[in-house]
Amino acid sequence: MFKKIMNKKLLKNQKGLTLIELLAVIVILAIIAAIAIPAIGNIIENSRYNAAKSDAINVINAANLYFTDEGSKDGEEVDFKTLKTNKYLDNAGKFEDKDAEGIVKKVAGGNTLSGKVKYSGEKTVNFNAATITVINDDKQKGSAPGDKDIPKK
């Protein structure tokens, strides 16, 4: 008899989630997901864009070594394939893609890179006689729509 009374009291004190509470939690999670997913996508796009800029700086630095070793004069040019063949560059990153282009020109004020590379899907970044300083000073976001130009037109 005592057991039956205790069981009834315990059952009355038990609480669980109602359907409305469960739906409220699901709606809150959906709102958080709707905000977080595009933000994560933008972070990934910006990272890919910054990686392409980093690859460009690596190509310019490898060209600096090439020009120094070869005793090149102002106005001479070298492409990333030559840099890789002559072992000045181990990996050209995005510049190794089949559609990528890139020429580094020796200039007294700082060697310049001219070319283009895809960094995400069909998005490209165009380097128009860009120096390392110009590339580092670029504040464009890779997640913004359209192709990017460095320096910005």
Rank of each mutant, 00 (worst) to 15 (best):
V59I: 13
D55L: 08
V59K: 02
N86W: 03
A33H: 03
K106E: 09
R48L: 12
Q140A: 15
K4L: 09
I40K: 11
A129Q: 11
I132G: 03
A144M: 13
A51R: 10
G41C: 04
S114H: 00
I57W: 01
K15N: 06
D90C: 03
I32P: 07
S143E: 08
I35F: 12
L17P: 00
G71S: 09
A52S: 07
L22G: 07
A52G: 04
K98A: 15
G71Y: 04
K105L: 11
V107W: 09
E96H: 08
K3C: 02
K141R: 11
K98V: 15
F2M: 03
N64M: 07
L89V: 05
G121S: 04
L22R: 00
F95L: 02
V134W: 00
G110S: 10
I28L: 10
E70C: 08
G115Q: 06
G71N: 02
G115K: 11
K98G: 10
K4M: 12
E122V: 09
D97L: 08
G75W: 01
F67M: 10
N86S: 15
L29F: 11
N13T: 12
T131V: 10
N64K: 14
F80I: 05
A24R: 06
K73I: 06
K116I: 06
N46G: 09
Y49G: 01
N86C: 01
Y119C: 08
K139Q: 14
K53D: 05
G93E: 10
T82R: 05
S54P: 02
P38C: 11
N136T: 06
D149G: 10
S72I: 00
K4D: 13
I32E: 10
L10F: 12
D79P: 00
D99F: 12
T133S: 14
K53E: 03
G146I: 00
Q14M: 13
I26C: 06
D79L: 10
L11S: 15
I44L: 15
I5R: 13
A34S: 12
G109M: 03
T124D: 05
I60S: 09
A30G: 09
V59Q: 10
I28C: 07
F67E: 00
T124P: 05
E21I: 00
V59P: 03
G109S: 11
D97P: 07
K116H: 09
N136S: 09
K152R: 14
V25A: 14
D147W: 02
I35S: 01
K106S: 12
L11C: 08
T68M: 05
I31F: 04
A39E: 08
I31T: 15
N91W: 08
I60N: 04
V27R: 01
K81R: 13
K139H: 14
L23E: 00
D79A: 04
S47V: 09
N91Q: 14
E70K: 15
D149R: 10
A129K: 15
A144E: 13
Y49P: 01
L23W: 10
A24Q: 04
E96T: 13
T124L: 02
T18E: 07
M6T: 06
A130N: 04
I35C: 03
N64A: 10
A129W: 01
V107A: 11
K106T: 01
N136F: 08
L10R: 15
K106N: 13
V107E: 15
S143P: 00
Y49E: 05
F127S: 04
L113M: 13
L17E: 02
A92V: 07
S143R: 01
I37C: 05
